[in-house]
Write a protein that binds this DNA or RNA. Structure first.
Length: 425
RNA sequence: GGAGAGAUGGCCGAGCGGUCGAAGGCGUCUGACUCGAAAUCAGAUGUGGUGCAAGCCACCGGGGGUUCAAAUCCCUCUCUCUCCGCCA
C-alpha cells in the first residue's frame, strides 16, 4: 500500500508509474474519493467537537445539581447528524480502501521500462552450461529411472501437480534444505525461524496476497485460515503492528517452509515434473531495513541466494524485472534463473525483491529513531534462498552422468550420509 | 470438547457513565548534583487523522448497541489464562 499523500501531492507520478506497469487504475476516481474523505472528515469532526463541548457543559450543570434537560434535547439532533456523517465517512473510506489496496507499488526509478518479461535485462551470468557427450535427460525421466521421483502415486494421493520423493530423493530434498539454512545462518548472518504454515486473512492482506490474489491461495474456510504460498507471509508479518528499536535493525531472518499455490491460470504449463507444484519447499530470506540501506541490502540478499547456486555448482544468470513484469508489491526485483539442461534454458529459481515501505505500511511495521517524534516505516525485502524443489531439478539435470546416475556436489556431501552418486536401481 | 477468569499506554497495574488519553509503579529520555558513575531530586515520555497554525477528532482486544456523554452499561466475535477431558 502506498501513502495516500501521493494522490494529493504527485498524482501524475502515480499515473505514470502505473502506466509503466501496465496497471489499469482510475487515478481520478481515487483523487475524488480522497478529497471527499477529507471533506467529510472535517465536517464530522467539527460536529463532534461541538457535541463534546455541549456534553461537557451538561456534565458541569448536573454536577452542580442543575437541570440540563433542555440542553440535552438540543444536542440530541446533533447526534443524528454525526451518525449520518460517520456513515458517509465509513462508506467513502471503504470505497477508497478497496480501490487503494489494488494499486501496486511504484517501480524504483532505475527500473527498466518494459511491457513483459521479454524486456527484462540480464544483469550477469555465473558458470557455464555443462556440455554432455549424450542427450541430457529431463529430471522427471532421471528421477523415475533412479526411483526417487513418483508422480503417478502422488496423483493417486492428491491429484495433479504433486510428487512423492523416495529414498535418496527425499534425502536430497532434506539435504538441500539443511544446506541452505546452514549457509544463511552460519555465514550470512540470518536468524532461523520456523513459522506457522497456516495464517489468517490479516496476514495475507499485509503482505499483499489479499484481497487481489485470493484465487492463488489454498483456503481453509471453516477456520478462516490460508496455507502460505511463501514464507514471506508469516515471516514479514512477524513484526506486524510493531515499533522496533532502531538498534535492532537490520533484522535478517531465514525460514524453511513448504509453500502451497493453487496455480490458477497456469493450466497446461510445466505439467510434467517438479517445476510447478501445488506444494513445494522453499528456504526464504526476509529482511527489515532502514530505508537508507534497503537497496544495498537487496544487492547483498541477491548475493546470498546466488551463493547457494555457486556452491552447488549450478550455472545461472541474474535478470532484473522490468516495470511490466514486476510483482504487485515489489519496487525492484532480481530473478535468479538456473540452467536446466533438460529444457536447454534458464528457469527461475529465486526472486529477490525490495518492497520499500509498501508492505510495511499495510502491516504497520515501524521503527523508532531516537530524537525523532514519529516512528518511521521500515523497508522490507525478501528473496528465495532457494526454491528447494527447483534446486533439486537443477541438480539432477546438471549433474547427471551418461549412465543415468547423478553426482552429488561437494557442498552437499556432509548432508548425504556418505552418498556421492545416486545410482539407477 | 466441558467449566470458569481475563484482555487498559514500551512493561506491570488502577480506573463511582461526565473533571480520563487515562492514577501509580517500572522502564526510557533530558536536566541538576558528581572528577565520573551509582543513588537522589526535577521535568518529559502512546498512536493515527485533520489543519498554515493554535487546535480539533479518533483510539483502553475487534464489531455493534444504549446515552446529551462509554475504558466504565448491554450484545456479539476473537484471543489469552486456569481446571477437566482428549491427543502427537
Amino acid at each position: 500500500m502506498l501513502d495516500l499523500k501521493i494522490l494529493r501531492e504527485e498524482p501524475e507520478r502515480l499515473a505514470h508509474a502505473l502506466e509503466d506497469r501496465g496497471a489499469t487504475v482510475d487515478v481520478a476516481r481515487l483523487q475524488e474519493l480522497e478529497a471527499r474523505r477529507r471533506e467529510l472528515l472535517t465536517a464530522v469532526e467539527a460536529k463532534k467537537a461541538e457535541r463534546n463541548a455541549a456534553s461537557k457543559r451538561i456534565g458541569e450543570v448536573k454536577r452542580a445539581g442543575g437541570d440540563a434537560a433542555e440542553a440535552q434535547a438540543a444536542v440530541r439532533g446533533l447526534g443524528e447528524e454525526i451518525a449520518t456523517l460517520d456513515r458517509d465517512v465509513a462508506e467513502t473510506v471503504d470505497a477508497l480502501n478497496a480501490l487503494w489496496l489494488t494499486v501496486p507499488n511504484l517501480p524504483h526509478p532505475g527500473c527498466p521500462v518494459g511491457r513483459d518479461e521479454s524486456a527484462n535485462p540480464e544483469v550477469r551470468r555465473w558458470g557455464r552450461p555443462p556440455t554432455f557427450a549424450f542427450e541430457p535427460r529431463a529430471h522427471w525421466e532421471l528421477g523415475e529411472r533412479l526411483g526417487i521421483l513418483d508422480f503417478e502415486r502422488a496423483t493417486k494421493l492428491s491429484g495433479a501437480r504433486f510428487a512423492v520423493l523416495w529414498g535418496a530423493g527425499a534425502r536430497l530434498e532434506r539435504a538441500l534444505t539443511a544446506f541452505m539454512l546452514d549457509l544463511h545462518t552460519g555465514e550470512h548472518g540470518y536468524t532461523e525461524l520456523l513459522p506457522p504454515f497456516l495464517v489468517n486473512a490479516a496476514s495475507m492482506t499485509a503482505t499483499g496476497q489479499l484481497p487481489k490474489f485470493e484465487e492463488d491461495l489454498f483456503a481453509c474456510r471453516d477456520d478462516d485460515l490460508y496455507l502460505i504460498p511463501t514464507a514471506e507471509v508469516p515471516v514479514t508479518n512477524l513484526h506486524r503492528d510493531e515499533i522496533l528499536d532502531e538498534g535492532s535493525l537490520p533484522r535478517r531472518y531465514c525460514a524453511y517452509t513448504p509453500c502451497f499455490r493453487r496455480e490458477a491460470g497456469s493450466h497446461g504449463q510445466d505439467t510434467r515434473g517438479l517445476i510447478r507444484q501445488h506444494q513445494f519447499d522453499k528456504v526464504e530470506l526476509v529482511r527489515f531495513e532502514e530505508p537508507e540501506h534497503s537497496y544495498a541490502a537487496l544487492e547483498e540478499l541477491t548475493g546470498h541466494a546466488e551463493a547457494v547456486l555457486q556452491r552447488l555448482e549450478l550455472p545461472y544468470r541474474v535478470i532484473e524485472l522490468c516495470t511490466g513484469d514486476l510483482g504487485f508489491s515489489a519496487a525492484k526485483t532480481y530473478d535468479l534463473e538456473v540452467w536446466l539442461p533438460g529444457q536447454a534454458r534458464y528457469r527461475e529459481i529465486s526472486s529477490c525483491s525490495c518492497f520499500e515501505s509498501f508492505q510495511a505500511r499495510r502491516a504497520q511495521i515501524r521503527y523508532r529513531v531516537p530524537g525523532q517524534k514519529k516512528p518511521r516505516l521500515v523497508h522490507t525485502l525478501n528473496g528465495s534462498g532457494l526454491a528447494v524443489g527447483r534446486t533439486l531439478v537443477a541438480l539432477l539435470e546438471n549433474h547427471q552422468q551418461a549412465d543415468g546416475s547423478v553426482r552429488i556436489p561437494e557442498a552437499l556431501l556432509p548432508y548425504m550420509g556418505g552418498l556421492e552418486v545416486i545410482e539407477p536401481r
